[in-house]
Amino acid sequence: MDDERRRVLDLLCEDARYTAEDVARQLDLAPEDVEAHVEALENAGVVRGYTAVVDWAALDDGIVEAKVELNVELDRETGYEDISRRIAKFPEVTAFQLVSGDYDFALEVRADTMNAVSRFVSEEIAPIPEVTQTVTHYVMETYKDDGIEFDDGETDDRLSYSP
């Protein structure tokens, strides 16, 4: 990827709500050039979407998140791709990756209650014929997500004026 496009991408990852002008100012580009880069990144499937980073615990009627480890058994007719297509469709599954190590897939699952999460795993995921094992970890506290720290943000103890 050309260097300029890469720098645009880096800034979008820092804050997807930067306007084209914000990005243009920082990189000394024309806003139209930034827009063109973003469009190219989207068209190429590099940028897949934009979403908010949410601290669900800060909501009264919050949401329960869980990380689910999944083991599967493949046969001659079924590969990882086939299983992944099926699982990725569930709206409860917010992230889904094939990983190396002790298990095959790592899922992130979101639902309104703990009960709903476990029902989803036991009723929708576990019965899939290739699935041999699931291990569900409920998220108890999030300290950082997508590069954003969930602290109070009050870390600047500098004096307001210094020479």
């Binding site: 500098r158 307001s160 004026y161 210094s162 020479p163």
Partner: peptide, 11 residues
């Protein structure tokens, strides 16, 4: 609610 651009040190 001051935003200080008076700082003489890194953030």
């Amino acid at each position: 609610d001051v935003v200080s651009l008076g700082v003489g040190e890194p953030d």
